[in-house]
Structure formats: structure tokens, C-alpha cells
């Protein structure tokens, strides 16, 4: 991927609830919602805490460290914008903060993929105003 040329992948449409998350990525920070009522961290961003029903949140920076929970390796272009990336690995990751994220994982051979493999988050600016997270092999905790 490159920051130049026409970007032809799907792009997010941030909402008032999620805008700080996307703005955080642009500053190369992975931000998570933390409930001001009970302290529960949640992801993806949503207006209400399902535990205490507070709608007050603060945004906390995640460590970016986690372990693989599951994955898929995609060989089919479900959108024209991903054709050049094929095949690509999408990893579901348990973050240290207790929530999960999903992103493309790079630098791990298919036969080395396993539940519990440590990974960490990196960032890349793919177009003006849009930075996306991706995953690379991490250090064991």
C-alpha cells in the first residue's frame, strides 16, 4: 500500500462516537473507550456502557500488545481494492486491555500462525486523513 495514487479500498465513515478512535489512529495511537462510570474498557466504540449504562467516556491509549485469538487467510478479492494484497491474513487479537481487535497481520508465515502468538500494532497512513492499524510479530509477554 502507498500513500500516493488513488485509494480504492473501502473507507470508514466515523460517527460522533467513534471519531476520537480514528483521530487517534492518525496520531499513531490505538485509543479505546473507558467508561467513566465503572471503568470498563470496551471496543468497538459505542454510546453506552453495557455494564453500568453510563454514556460518559474517556479515551485511553492501548499498549498495542496482544496475542492471536483466531485468523483467516483471504485468497479471494471481495472488493477490487484488495486484489493486489492477496493473499492476506486477517488476525483477531486479544489485546492486553481485555478487548479484541481485527487487522491485517504481516510477517508471519502461514504455518507459524497459532492461538496465543504475540503480536503488536503498527500504523500506516493509507491516504490523506486515514491511518489504519496492522499487526506484526510481537515479543512474548
Amino acid at each position: 500500500m502507498s500513500a500516493t495514487g488513488t485509494y480504492n479500498k473501502l473507507v470508514p465513515e466515523p460517527t460522533p462516537h467513534s471519531a476520537p478512535y480514528w483521530e487517534g489512529l492518525n496520531r499513531r495511537k490505538l485509543l479505546l473507550q473507558k467508561c467513566r462510570g465503572c471503568g470498563r474498557i470496551r471496543h468497538y466504540p459505542q454510546p453506552m456502557c453495557p455494564s453500568c449504562h453510563s454514556m460518559e467516556v474517556e479515551w485511553v491509549e492501548a499498549s498495542g500488545r496482544g496475542v492471536i485469538h483466531s485468523w483467516t487467510i483471504t485468497h479471494h478479492a471481495f472488493h477490487p481494492g484488495v486484489r493486489e494484497d492477496l493473499p492476506y491474513t486477517l488476525a483477531t487479537v486479544d489485546l492486553e486491555e481485555g478487548v479484541r481487535m481485527l487487522a491485517q497481520l504481516r510477517g508471519v508465515p502461514d504455518d507459524k500462525l497459532r492461538i496465543g502468538l504475540p503480536v503488536r500494532v503498527e500504523f500506516e497512513t493509507v491516504k490523506d486523513g486515514l491511518t489504519l492499524p496492522y499487526l506484526v510479530p510481537g515479543e512474548p509477554a
Binding site: 479500498k9 473501502l10 470508514p12 465513515e13 468497538y44 483471504t74 494484497d85 486515514l130 492499524p133 496492522y134
Partner: peptide, 12 residues
Amino acid sequence: LVGEFEMPLGAI
């Protein structure tokens, strides 16, 4: 939610 947080990463 999938549309905002996963499809842009290639999970479509």
C-alpha cells in the same frame, strides 16, 4: 460496526 471497523481493513 463491521462496516466501519473491519471492512476498511479488508474483512468484507
